[in-house]
């Protein structure tokens, strides 16, 4: 029964997350309306006059999500196609471990890399770029989620039966045509699920964006400006000396709850897509 108890710890964890986020957010929303929180365009919870509109943080997060997605999704998919359709076993045996290493590098290292390498590079080309900017963070988050996209897409593509591909080749199709019309459509649900999971990962990414993207809540679409993501805000507050119970303290739970709900929604969606549309082959 000790075994069963251990297994239930995962459920307790989930319940605890919901309880903690719920309780403190509830306190927060007694003082700030949900409407103001979700649709307000100013986020100034630490300075008077305080305002609690989460949109600037959300916009900052989305800027990172979109930017990193634009980098990681095509690259990851094409890598998976190359690995499964063209590459020799030798190439696979080189690239796969590299992907594992890239996936295992701690996020704080990526943050450092963005700040001290990618940002100077960008500023070399675009001198107007701010030191902290969304572009640099997007690139580095893109690199971070690339292995995930590549390896999940690779799994999805590899689960397409070889016989189906051979059917395509036997009709005189080129590898590109087989990929475009046979393999990718057959692996589509797995590929989409991998995109959703990667996006969810980018959404919750913390250290790299804290280091590279800045701490300026900024409702902007310009990736060269300093912004602040939801996660970076939470870090900022906890680095300061915020007393428990105050509204500043409660903001991190409200923002955390939003973060949790969105990422959980995406993960559930990804699982659902994978199960619902899984092609059944013999």
């Amino acid at each position: 029964m000790i075994l069963a108890l251990s297994a239930f710890i995962s459920i307790f964890t989930t319940l605890a997350i919901i309880a903690v986020l719920g309780k403190e957010s509830f306190g927060f929303f007694q003082q700030v309306s949900i409407w103001e929180f979700l649709f307000g365009t100013h986020w100034e919870p630490l300075l008077e006059p305080k305002s609690f509109g989460v949109l600037p943080l959300l916009a900052g997060t989305l800027l990172i999500v979109v930017g990193s997605g634009l980098i990681a999704i095509p690259t990851g998919l094409m890598t998976a196609v190359y690995l499964s359709e063209y590459a020799s076993e030798r190439t696979r045996s080189i690239i796969k471990p590299i992907m594992e290493v890239l996936a295992g590098v701690p996020t704080v290292v990526y943050g450092y890399f963005a700040l001290t390498f990618i940002t100077p590079m960008i500023r070399l080309i675009l001198p107007d770029t701010q030191i902290f900017n969304a572009l640099s963070a997007s690139i580095v988050v893109g690199i971070m989620i690339l292995p995930m996209v590549a390896s999940l897409c690779d799994d999805a593509i590899r689960s397409v039966p070889v016989s189906l591909r051979q059917g395509g080749y036997a009709l005189g199709a080129t590898p590109f045509e087989v990929t475009k019309n046979v393999t990718v459509p057959a692996a589509f649900s797995g590929i989409i699920a991998s995109f959703v999971l990667a996006v969810s990962r980018a959404f919750g990414e913390t250290m790299a964006v804290t280091l590279a993207a800045g701490a300026t809540p900024n409702l902007t679409l310009n990736p060269l400006e300093s912004i602040q993501t939801m996660t970076a805000y939470i870090v900022q507050v906890s680095l300061g000396d915020t007393p428990a119970g105050g509204i500043e303290y409660q903001t991190i739970f409200a923002v955390g709850a939003l973060l949790f709900v969105v990422t959980l929604g995406m993960n559930v969606a990804a699982n659902w897509i994978m199960n619902r549309y899984r092609e059944v082959y013999e």
């Binding site: 997350i17 990962r201 939470i234 959980l264 993960n267």
Partner: peptide, 9 residues
């Protein structure tokens, strides 16, 4: 899939 910072909270 829960972001690590949520565990921090």
């Amino acid at each position: 899939g829960v972001p690590s910072i949520v565990y921090g909270i």
